[in-house]
Amino acid sequence: MGYHLNFNLVWRHFDKLLNGLVLSLELALLSILIGAVIGLTLAVWYVSAGRFARGLISGYVEVIRNVPLLLLVYLVFYGLPTVVNIAYDATTSFVLTLSLYSGAYLVEVFRSGLDAVPRGQIDAGRAIGLTPIQRLAYVRLPIMTRISLPALSNTFISLFKDTSIASVIAVPELTFGAQWINNTTFRIVEVYLVVTTIYLIAGYMILLLLRLVERRFRVER
């Protein structure tokens, strides 16, 4: 064992990692917000849509779920601008990709959440004379959101980890920061030990925070 761990070079560039972590969190948060809008819209549309629209929505979900995220990142960043005349930087491109990606998963989350709203509570909304839109706004969506919270938390934690894939298109998030330090200092073991620890701690903090939120909004069914 001739290798001696030396973290000094990693600490010297620690700001790269901190900035990277902040960007990773931002990417995940922005993507889940946009993804939630996509997911919610499509889920609500799905449950009231005809066969054709349902087919389209299912198609979107299946494509996203069966294509590796890495490939989607390449397709959107390198492929899309060549086909259509648009230009965006790597970060925008990645947010777009991850939003579409989380959107597909969230369609399923919200759709099963809507299905899980107890029939009786919808009947109660009917019985007091709520219109379908009012039932959606005041009964189905609020209950669905609470039912979906645990799955939503899991999706967010997955997305946070998936942001590391943005490093392949040079988005300066946490993993890219690690690669940069590694390329500069060649302290590969130290860098990845530190980065792994950062992912672990950050992910666990997020989990604890989301569990608190879940407990606050838990509903008895």
Partner: peptide, 24 residues
Amino acid sequence: TERDLARMRAETGMVFQSFNLFPH
């Protein structure tokens, strides 16, 4: 129509076996 039905339903009140309160 659904809107019309909603208006008609408001003319009756219903109490359910399983309460069906809005849990949130």
